[in-house]
Design a protein around this nucleic acid. Structure first.
Lengths: 121, 121
DNA sequence: CAGTATCCGGATGGATACTG
DNA sequence: CAGTATCCATCCGGATACTG
């Protein structure tokens, strides 16, 4: 095996780690996945779709994704307020990589679970 | 946009979240990337390659990846001890998805950093 | 060399209450 | 509706010391 892949630096300051660390939080990948699948969504819509994310963490996650330029946030000056979120072009360019990861997870979850059980036996 | 992607459940107990949560820790993706690029490696080799991972966290990460069946651990009964790690077939099947993520990160880090600076200005 | 054991601080993130 | 503010428990993960 080995070395059929492009080599990446793995030093602490490298760009790849800088970005991948972002996905290390609990909700970022999931929010991108949900927005990518559903298009434009309101705050509470995302909240209900994910189900078990707190209001606080959803806000923090969306703000971070907005800061990174992955998600666009549009506020409508209405009462009651309406705020819509959608992936930016950059965010959408990330989607295929996320979905391919999700597909892999979907296809291999059984094997992984079996492996975990064996290991803990 | 939207709905060009296969739909995934996003409920708290879904398989995808079960697997993706694993990548939420600080070192898993990086260890897989390093092993995928270099093939078989000894404990201290991985440690040095990553650079800023503690002995404890590297052990924990490797054990978890082993439990999930992504990494194989082979102990040689020698003094001083030698332990070699490599990706399993399952682990290797994950590699393309990780490297495609890394490539994306590499290509877009500049735009993301620029976006962050604008947002915090 | 490749770990284990222990301690410990800081960050993560949940619950709750409140607001424009 | 879409947040903010605050408090607080947990847990992640680093530092250090020790071992077969």
């Amino acid at each position: 095996m080995e070395k059929n892949f492009k080599k990446f630096s793995t030093s602490p300051q490298c760009p790849i780690r800088n970005v991948l660390d972002r996905f290390g939080d609990k909700w970022s990948i999931l929010v991108i996945l949900v927005l990518g699948e559903n298009g434009t969504m309101r705050f509470n819509e995302i909240n209900k779709t994910i189900g078990d994310v707190s209001q606080k963490m959803l806000t923090v996650t969306l703000r971070t994704l907005e800061a990174d330029g992955l998600v666009a946030r549009q506020v409508f000056p209405e009462i009651p307020p309406r705020v819509e979120y959608q992936l930016t072009h950059l965010g959408m360019s990330l989607m295929p990589h996320i979905t391919s990861l999700a597909s892999w997870a979907d296809q291999n979850i059984h094997q992984i679970k079996t492996s975990r059980e064996k290991f803990n036996a």
